[in-house]
């Protein structure tokens, strides 16, 4: 009985603990809300940003239930919304937002691509209908726009992906680190990634990843998109919250808020 209890404990550990990190829990592109709900919410996000005159905004989504996220992390993906002239397949031109993202590949999760999509695509498979939004100051918006429309946007992309990429190193990059790198490239008018990293090290405080090191070590063994090799000590990564705090600290935010279907 005693041994049975231990086996049971081991079984529970295996079944619940590691997946609870989200290290290997995957979506199959499943949608959790009706198309009408997603369309309505996406349009609301667009209208709120447009009403505030945002040409550029950092936008975060919640890809899995909040209770399954590590402590201190509330958002699972960050992209950049750019007010654009959108041309449709039938040739019409519409004013709206385009979303610029670093997405990991579905078949090679340790690799990423830069992909532009639109708000309904961005929020298409979220598990919580909520958007985190940071609207930078006009000057920073202008500079981010310059970066987004230059070769720098692609140049600072590192396709080697890790979900907990260390933002202070050049080894791996995730969606939030790419966003952070764009912000720093914009602030300092540079496409020199080493200079960007030096400035991030000096001024940006990354989020500690509060996950048991043993779990992380095992995650790095079994999940291609998790590595701890770029973390000499306690793992840290860039998050929507930490980028937001950095921008607030240095007076680079016009407004930050969340949008839900009801607020």
């Amino acid at each position: 009985m005693k041994h049975g209890g231990r086996f049971f404990s081991a079984f529970l550990c295996a079944i619940f603990l590691l997946p609870s990190l989200g290290l290997a829990s995957h979506s199959s592109g499943q949608i959790y809300f009706s198309p009408e709900e997603i369309i309505g919410f996406s349009k609301k996000v667009e209208k709120v940003m447009a009403a505030k005159g945002a040409r550029v905004a950092l936008v975060a989504r919640v890809g899995r239930p909040r209770e399954k996220l590590p402590e201190g992390i509330s958002w699972t993906h960050t992209g950049i919304a750019v007010y654009s002239l959108i041309t449709t397949a039938d040739g019409r031109q519409l004013p709206g937002y385009a979303m610029y993202n670093l997405y990991q590949r579905s078949k090679e999760p340790d690799k990423s691509d830069l992909i532009m999509d639109y708000p309904v695509d961005f929020f298409g498979a979220v598990e919580v209908l909520e958007a985190g939004i940071v609207i930078p100051t006009p000057e920073l918006q202008k500079r981010i726009l310059q970066v987004m429309s230059s070769e720098t946007y692609k140049k600072i992309h590192n396709p080697h992906y890790s979900v907990i990429a260390n933002p202070y190193t050049l080894d791996y990059q995730n969606c939030t680190e790419h966003t952070l790198d764009i912000v720093f490239a914009a602030i300092y008018h540079t496409d020199d990634i080493k200079q960007i990293k030096a400035n991030e090290k000096a001024y940006f405080e990354a989020q500690r990843v509060n996950v048991n090191p043993i779990k992380l070590a095992f995650g790095s063994i079994f999940a291609a998109d998790v590595t701890v090799s770029d973390h000499p000590g306690q793992p840290v990564t860039a998050t929507f919250e930490s980028i937001s705090r950095f921008l607030q600290k240095f007076g680079a935010v016009s407004e930050s808020f969340t949008v839900t279907p009801t607020n």
Partner: peptide, 25 residues
């Protein structure tokens, strides 16, 4: 633990994790 992780990896389309950067669309 390995079996558990591996079985979830098999469902993969986009990783939902600390950073869920999979293409939602």
């Amino acid at each position: 633990t390995g079996i558990s992780v591996h079985s979830h990896a098999g469902e993969q389309a986009s990783t939902q994790s600390v950073q869920h950067s999979g293409q939602a669309s």
